[in-house]
Amino acid sequence: MLIGAFVALYTDELLSAVIALGAIGFGSSGIFLLLRAPDLAITQVVVEVITLVLLIRATMVIGAHTAGGKKQLLPYLVAGGIVGGLFIFSVFTLQNMPEIGSSVMDRIDDAPSLYYLLQGLDLTGSTNQVMSVLLDFRAYDTLGEATVIFTAVLGGLTLLRKNGRAEPNE
């Protein structure tokens, strides 16, 4: 996936960059499956296909197949500074991270996840606990997320419209 990321950023062909992004997405879907998250694996595969279709449609514009242009030094310096700073702080933070494989539930006694797991079947009747968290315990998140999709569609429609305002004679 790291190789895919490098390829995605540093090829000149836009189409191969998009396909490299697809490699990242399907790779992360496989990792989700290994980490016992089948819901996420399904969602990631499907969403990745849709994203690829969208990006390829954006790439298929006439005359935009390659990403050329002169390179400037200043953005690279700024980016190097920011990335370096982030890296240093992240290293300090990740030193204190717990081992992979010890969840929050193992370390804290009254973690909310433990409550969801223990009471999920009785309170919601759903055997898939991801769905019971998503649509019952934390349904506000889903509501906000539905709002985001709605806003994205609305923004897309507004931007793709032919005229900014209605014609005066109608």
Binding site: L54, R57, G125, S126, M131, S132, L135, V153, G156, L157
Partner: peptide, 29 residues
């Protein structure tokens, strides 16, 4: 039929996402 509103919510979200994705891709086409 044991999960109550979760089934209905799932159907609602499914309808909504289906409509949204189709509308976006249709306009791009």
């Amino acid at each position: 039929f044991n999960a109550g509103t979760i089934v209905i919510n799932n159907i609602a979200i499914g309808i909504k996402v289906c409509g949204a994705i189709f509308v976006i891709l249709f306009f791009l086409s």
